[in-house]
Write a protein that binds this DNA or RNA. Sequence first.
DNA 1: CGGCGGCTTGAGAAAGATCAAACGCTGTGG
DNA 2: CCACAGCGTTTGATCTTTCTCAAGCCGCCG
Lengths: 219, 219
Amino acid sequence: MEFVAEFKTGEIVVEAGGSILVHGSHTAHLFTMLDGWAFRYKTLDDGRRQVLNYLLPGDLVGLQGNVLGEMDHSIEALTDTTMCMFERRRLDELFVKHPQLAYDITWLAAQEERFLDEHLLSIGRRSAIERTAYLIAFLYFRLKEINGEKKENGRIPITQQLIADTLGLSIVHTNKTIRKLINRKLIKWRDRGCDVLDAEGLTDLAKWEYEPPVDRPFL
Amino acid sequence: MEFVAEFKTGEIVVEAGGSILVHGSHTAHLFTMLDGWAFRYKTLDDGRRQVLNYLLPGDLVGLQGNVLGEMDHSIEALTDTTMCMFERRRLDELFVKHPQLAYDITWLAAQEERFLDEHLLSIGRRSAIERTAYLIAFLYFRLKEINGEKKENGRIPITQQLIADTLGLSIVHTNKTIRKLINRKLIKWRDRGCDVLDAEGLTDLAKWEYEPPVDRPFL
DNA sequence: CGGCGGCTTGAGAAAGATCAAACGCTGTGG
DNA sequence: CCACAGCGTTTGATCTTTCTCAAGCCGCCG
């Protein structure tokens, strides 16, 4: 724990809409989410954008930079966000001195892989309404896992444009699809975000099941 | 190295079409690809299948089992395949005694994440012909990286059904799209596989660029 | 008050899915 | 040696999902 404190080089606060990392940058830092929501995305030159995943407290960011030397995707804050910074250079030291923490990092990477696998299945093979139900259920359960039941079901702070860019759909079609979910009383939409009314209804519709991880590390 | 040899519990040979891991199993092993091609995939109950990624020599398999306790996807051999088995139980030991190897595992996980990110961008935002060009170019460069230029461009051993299931397309449309690539003299198709004739043409069409990793570990 | 971002809706267009049929191998059993 | 079955591929016709274009609404903020 002392090492973690020492390894940490600072905290950073980014307000909603701000960039946390941009494609092509060579950051000397890794980040851990402490509070707030963010999302990772890639874009094509002509502007088409794909959201890859969402980041919530406890998630680790920036490991891919170790493979390539630079980031190959960007990260933007969805709400006001605070993150913890670590020096990438000292990652070896962490692996040598703190195998438990090293294992946690690997565990987090494996979890991210699981999420991406499921996203891929959604975008590739689920219909528009199934995908949408899946995404909202997915975020709902992630949020619940982090809130630990305490807060009653938190609002998911997302725009329809973002959902469209996550699911590979146009915004128009996304809107019509969301409306169907609302009509079926599965969710409620307000402001820029949504509340889940019937989580089971969503997972059934998506033909998906939430699988809680077994041994969450304590990074 | 001695430890690697000791850590290794054996090799396993799977013939083309055979299952390596199935969804829901609790394997006590991790695997490394030594030779051959395999692919990871998930399915929905009604049979829709999504290929997640392809496995080539050097790739690590089964880490996700650590998050969940069981595998949440399946793996099938595409060609005759030989893999190296490790005991999952002893992963902690590896992290304690061999930080360099532990780092390599993490590196491989980060690389897989990069691949999945790009696949997601393809399926979500690229058109059918862009996707197809991307996938073939992607496999071409991965193969080339492994063959180290020596063998002239190896055949990519894949069926059109598999390409369809990787790209989220129907087999009919996949066939028509591949035919366009053939007509443009970008690839040649024969038997069950394809040869790349013009790698740059493919990457241009896909609006993608191959980025070689910087410091490959030696696992 | 005007402008902007996010949401909503309708209409027509296009990409891709589904259905149906057939071809060319290859392996197998008579 | 031939008939036949099965798999992977090919092609045409039609149908559906999703996209694009266009316009309008609403609430918020300067």
